[in-house]
């Protein structure tokens, strides 16, 4: 529509990239450009440059809190409804219960509260709990730690069982360095006995991660496999 004869090819591409980033082009032209971004790296770089320039205008957008229900819908679309309990193991049932409840508020959806025997927790005993959200969508884990006897339990929510690898649990301290807590022994209900020196380091706010390691644990002392899950410890 414009007289494009006066533009050199480089200028032409640059103008197009700028127009795309501004958003002034009609729908069909935008679609063509999006295709080109995927196949033409030099053109994609021009687009990225304009994006970086114009992002200086981003402070012009006022912040408006969206209704809480929007995040619930996002989670439901990405992760589906809470998994129904498929076992007599009481903890799993209560977990599903809490997960369902958690849909009501963002804060509650981050943490679940239960006692290792599956009863709803009534405070008093300082049991610390972390939900280790699964990163692959195939499984999730719940860790509970009782400072009184130094016992940590890792319980799979939906274990992918036929895997010859080990799940290794890491404590992520404030400095961000992972330290191995131990391997998840699925035969022993996920019990990990925490060593005395390590007990000192487990308190509210520290994070845990679970990585997939060769059978028997990481050969290097640091996570080598993918991090399957991570979570932060909170007091009940």
């Amino acid at each position: 529509m414009a007289d494009e004869s006066e533009l050199r090819p480089g200028e032409m591409d640059d103008a197009l990239a700028a127009e795309y980033v501004l958003g002034v082009l009609p729908h069909d032209e935008r679609a063509l450009i999006e295709k080109r971004i995927g196949s033409d790296a030099a053109f994609a770089a021009r687009v990225a440059t304009w994006q970086a320039h114009f992002s200086a205008f981003d402070p012009d957008y006022a912040e408006v809190s969206p209704p809480a229900a929007v995040f619930d819908r996002i989670e439901r679309r990405l992760f589906g409804a809470p998994a129904p309990a498929r076992t007599a193991f009481s903890l799993w049932g209560s977990l599903a219960f809490w997960r369902g409840l958690a849909a009501a508020s963002l804060a509650a959806s981050l943490f679940i509260f239960f006692r290792p025997d599956g009863a709803i927790f009534q405070s008093q005993a300082p049991v610390l709990v972390a939900e280790l959200a699964a990163t692959t969508g195939h499984m999730g884990l719940v860790a509970s730690y009782d400072p009184a006897d130094g016992e940590m339990r890792i319980v799979p929510i939906a274990a992918a069982s036929d895997n010859p690898k080990s799940l290794e649990v890491w404590l992520i301290a404030e400095d961000g360095r992972p330290q191995s807590i131990g391997l998840v022994d699925t035969a022993d209900k996920g019990l990990i006995r925490i060593s005395d020196p390590m007990r000192q380091r487990i308190h509210q706010g520290v994070s845990f991660a679970v990585s997939l390691e060769p059978q028997g644990g990481s050969p290097t002392g640091q996570p080598t496999g993918p991090v399957l899950a991570s979570g932060t410890l909170r007091s009940l």
Partner: peptide
């Protein structure tokens, strides 16, 4: 980066911090 690993808690936190801005973008446009 944690969201890229599939960390749902990180995703929730990212949403909390950034959704008012992105909602502002949507409303304006």
């Amino acid at each position: 980066s944690r969201v890229a690993l599939g960390d749902r808690l990180a995703f929730a936190r990212l949403y909390t911090h950034t959704s008012p801005k992105l909602f502002g973008v949507c409303l304006r446009i």
